[in-house]
Design a protein around this nucleic acid. Structure first.
Length: 123
DNA sequence: CTTCTGACGAAAT
DNA sequence: CATTTCGCCAGAA
């Protein structure tokens, strides 16, 4: 399967309400895709897209500085996401648990490999 | 075909 | 902590 933005969107769709992931986390699950590419792809989505673009943050927990950042902050708050005094999201408290078995199977990925990657996020 | 444009991130300083 | 450097790619024009 060719690597394109649809692959990225499909993975972001896996992040459930109340949880967050970083651009880097998403990229780490997609060989050949870099953090920057993830952000670039999400930027092409419309405000009303079904894909939860607002749950993706910078590795520091900061919301990417751009027009619409405030909008993203509101969405996150509505989902119960908590922030630190520096205005950054406390990723450790809401870290996404990784893709579902459905996604892993649908994308023909090795479950063990995925586990390794996800385990790395916590360190 | 070539050029331009981005929601990043780890490491070094 | 704050800044700087450099790597990387799909898609639109």
């Amino acid at each position: 399967m060719a690597i394109n933005n649809d692959i990225i969107f499909a993975l972001v769709d896996e992040v459930p309400k109340g949880q967050v992931a970083s651009y880097g986390m998403i990229a780490s699950l997609l060989p050949g895709v870099g953090p920057r590419q993830v952000g670039s792809a999400l930027g092409k989505l419309g405000e009303r897209s079904k894909t939860p673009w607002h749950r993706i943050l910078q590795s520091s927990g900061a919301i990417a500085d751009r027009v619409g950042a405030e909008r993203q902050r509101c969405r996150l708050k509505r989902e119960g996401i908590t922030f630190r005094k520096n205005a950054a999201v406390d990723i450790a408290a809401h870290r996404w648990g990784g893709p579902s078995p459905i996604w892993i199977a649908a994308n023909e990925r090795d479950p063990l490999e995925i586990m390794e990657i996800v385990a790395g996020w916590g360190r």
